[in-house]
């Protein structure tokens, strides 16, 4: 990992510690050892470790520049963002669309997105797989394990 990356990680650790300490200060106090005792200790430790990471990085020599394979390409970042977006849409759609529809749509979109660039996407196969997997999981859990997954608009038609 490059020096800049290690520095950013150190600063993020420091930021997380400061943020946690700040939130701890908002908690009510009830004596020396109360519900804030451990949060203060943990926040201080996080700040200390963040500082240590920054100092060690600044003092250390012999960092190698990051190689092309280590650096994220714009398309990789887009794929990651699209995956996160798809997962978020899937979760948000669970209630309004119901599990079977939301899961089938999510699976199809995700199959297409994650298909390796070296392979030609097989859309018909993905549609079949997405529908079969979504229905199989829904039936198994709803009727096999009595887990009431949301049915959405399909609810009135479900046994």
């Amino acid at each position: 990992m490059s020096r800049n990356s290690e520095l950013i990680i150190g600063l993020a650790m420091l930021g997380a510690g400061i943020g946690y300490l700040f939130m701890t200060m908002q908690l009510p106090r009830r004596g020396a050892v109360d519900a804030t005792f451990f949060p203060y200790a943990l926040g201080t430790a996080m700040v200390g470790l963040g500082l240590l990471q920054v100092i060690v990085t600044l003092r250390r020599t012999g960092f190698l520049p990051s190689t092309a394979s280590e650096r994220l390409q714009p398309r990789q970042i887009l794929t990651v963002m699209a995956t996160l977006g798809l997962v978020a849409c899937f979760i948000a759609a669970l209630r309004p669309l119901g599990f079977p529809v939301a899961a089938a749509l999510f699976l199809f979109a995700q199959f297409c997105l994650l298909a390796p660039a070296t392979q030609k996407p097989r859309l018909f196969l993905y549609v079949v797989l997405a529908v079969v997997a979504a229905v199989l999981i829904f039936v198994t859990f709803r009727y096999g394990f009595r887990l009431m997954l949301p049915g959405g608009p399909l609810t009135p038609y479900l046994p």
């Binding site: 979760i91 669970l94 899961a103 995700q110 199959f111 390796p116 997997a133 999981i137 887990l147």
Partner: peptide, 29 residues
């Protein structure tokens, strides 16, 4: 690319099963 999205859906089912809350599914994300 086929296996992992199905696993993710199963994970969402597992999280939902904790308390039948969508909140828990957001938590895994």
């Amino acid at each position: 690319h086929i296996l992992l999205p199905i696993i993710l859906v199963l994970c969402a089912v597992g999280a939902f099963g904790l308390g039948s809350r969508i909140f828990d599914v957001w938590t895994i994300l």
